[in-house]
Design a protein around this nucleic acid. Structure first.
Length: 321
DNA sequence: AAAATTTTCAACCGCGAGCGT
DNA sequence: CACGCTCGCGGTTGAAAATTT
């Protein structure tokens, strides 16, 4: 015969929320063993808890473990979760291994209650990470009925949603520009890349900035350059810098960039933004594209993670206006 | 102020892989 | 080899809290 069955179906085993006393008992029991549980099956009886072994394990791993980080998820963490989800799907345990102090359960809950909804509002399918068709975007609402602020959000997402083909054209354009020196076009390409949260690796290939941060390795089968959510400009003012560059570049006679075929394609993605949103701020200094040809950590100014209020400004404040 | 509705998240449930008997 | 248990995982639930009406 095999072993006796688990305690989970025993009559009289307590369920539901844990009391402080139970927490204390479980923590003290595990600490007495130097933090090593050994067998969960034998733990409830050994600790004097009238709980199922599963319930004890869950309580410890999701709540009582000393290395658990509690509190709100940072923008960095949210962005990392989205990127990892694009590669792993609902493998919460795998995703949790990349976020120190976060549990799979916590990440799963945060995804379902926050991130998923934010992506939907941005017109991104949270399952496939693809741009939703226009009539399915923004929770199915008609764009004509939406507040102006939400249109801004959609425009920002569009601007950040350059696909990898477009970005490769940008890289090609940069190579072409290296022969001469056209600052307008150079700055434009730099800002488009910044808006898309991408940079160049040591092989001069365009990759997401997050992969340049040495936080984790490229995941197989992952397209990180999905529309919208990798847009990392910190606010609309910074988006405006890019928009102004586009307007300048597309105005006849102001830049040779507008005449270039790859440039036209590059600008198409943001055409809505450039056409419909009037820039309302002064120009800010922009990064020299040539500087991006070297391995980089993070684009300064345009992509500051510390000051990133991307989600907040783009989705919460704007949407509720 | 109270009721109704929505959101959040800790905890439960069931399943599958791996391993012991 | 077959059976059954343990562990860990992902989906789901439901009570409490927050928000709206």
């Amino acid at each position: 015969m095999g072993r006796s069955p688990c305690c989970c179906h025993d009559v009289g085993v307590k369920k539901g929320p844990w009391t402080e006393e139970e927490d204390k008992t479980l923590v003290e029991h595990i600490q007495k063993r130097g933090g090593h549980v050994g067998s969960w099956r034998g733990l409830p009886k050994a600790a004097g808890l009238n709980r199922c072994c599963k319930s004890c394990r869950l309580r410890w791993t999701n709540y009582l473990r000393p290395d658990i980080k509690r509190g709100n998820f940072s923008d960095d963490e949210e962005r990392l979760i989205i990127t990892l989800h694009a590669g792993h799907g609902n493998k919460w345990a795998t995703i949790a291994t990349h976020l120190e102090g976060r549990t799979d359960n916590e990440i799963k809950n945060h995804w379902n209650t926050h991130i998923r909804k934010k992506l939907l509002r941005m017109g991104v399918d949270p399952v496939t990470h693809q741009q939703l068709p226009p009539d399915h975007q923004l929770d199915g609402s008609s764009a004509a009925l939406l507040p102006e602020a939400l249109l801004w959000a959609a425009a920002a997402a569009t601007l950040g949603g350059l696909d990898i083909g477009t970005l490769r054209q940008a890289q090609l354009l940069q190579h072409l520009l290296q022969a001469g020196s056209n600052n307008d076009a150079t700055n434009l390409v730099a800002n488009l890349m910044a808006a898309s949260n991408v940079g160049l690796n040591s092989s001069n290939s365009i990759v997401p900035n997050i992969l340049l941060q040495d936080k984790f390795n490229m995941l197989p089968g992952t397209n990180y350059l999905q529309p919208g959510y990798l847009c990392n400009t910190s606010n609309f003012a910074e988006q405006d810098v890019v928009q102004q560059q586009l307007i300048n570049a597309m105005s006849p006679g102001t830049s040779s960039f507008a005449a270039a075929e790859p440039a036209d394609q590059l600008c198409n993605t943001a055409a809505f933004t450039a056409r419909d949103i009037a820039p309302g701020i002064d120009m800010l200094p922009v990064q020299e594209f040539a500087g991006l040809m070297e391995p980089m950590e993070q684009l300064p100014n345009l992509c500051s993670l510390e000051s990133d209020s991307f989600w907040k400004e783009l989705l919460e404040d704007g949407y509720r206006l």
